[in-house]
Simulated scan of single mutants.
Amino acid sequence: MSVKPQSASAPFAGPFALGTLAAADGPAFPALVDSEEQVLDLRTALDDPALTMRDLLERWPAVLPRLRALVADPGAVRRPLADFRVLAPVEPRQVFQSGANYRQHVIDLHVAHRAPDDERPEEERRAEAAEIMDRRAAEDLPYVFIGLPSAITGPYDDVTLPAWAKKPDWELELAVVIGRPAYQVSAEEALEYVAGYTIANDLTDRATVFRRDMPQIGTDWLRSKNAPGFTPLGPWIVPTESVTDTGDLRLTLKLNGEVMQDESTKDMIFDVARMVSYASQSTQLLPGDLVLTGSPAGNGMHWGRLLRDGDVMDASITGLGAQRTRCLAEES
Rank of each mutant, 00 (worst) to 15 (best):
S282K: 00
H105L: 08
T208L: 02
S277I: 12
A88I: 05
V33E: 08
R43S: 12
E128D: 14
D140K: 02
A175D: 07
A62C: 04
D118E: 08
D48H: 12
V90F: 01
F230A: 11
A227K: 06
I132P: 03
L253G: 04
V238A: 02
P65K: 03
F270H: 02
V185A: 00
S186H: 09
M313P: 02
D118V: 03
M1A: 10
A22M: 13
L191K: 09
A17S: 09
S277V: 13
T160Q: 14
V144T: 10
M214H: 04
P239Y: 08
Q6N: 02
T325G: 03
H110K: 03
A31T: 13
P287K: 07
I237V: 10
S264P: 10
A297P: 00
V259H: 08
Q284M: 15
L109E: 01
L21F: 07
P61H: 03
Y197I: 09
G298S: 06
R308L: 04
L70M: 14
T52K: 12
D311N: 07
A23R: 15
E241D: 12
L249G: 04
A112L: 09
V312W: 06
K4N: 01
E330C: 11
G196C: 07
E171Q: 00
F96W: 08
E119N: 02
T244P: 03
P74C: 12
I199Q: 04
G229I: 14
D48K: 11
S295W: 00
Y278R: 04
C327K: 07
V77S: 05
I317E: 03
A112T: 13
A190T: 10
E122Y: 01
I237S: 07
Q97F: 02
K167C: 00
P89C: 08
V63G: 00
W303Y: 09
L255R: 06
E171D: 05
R78P: 10
R223W: 14
G298M: 08
G218T: 03
Q104H: 01
N101I: 09
A322D: 11
E119L: 09
I217W: 05
M260T: 01
V312H: 05
A22D: 09
Q94D: 01
A175M: 11
L148N: 11
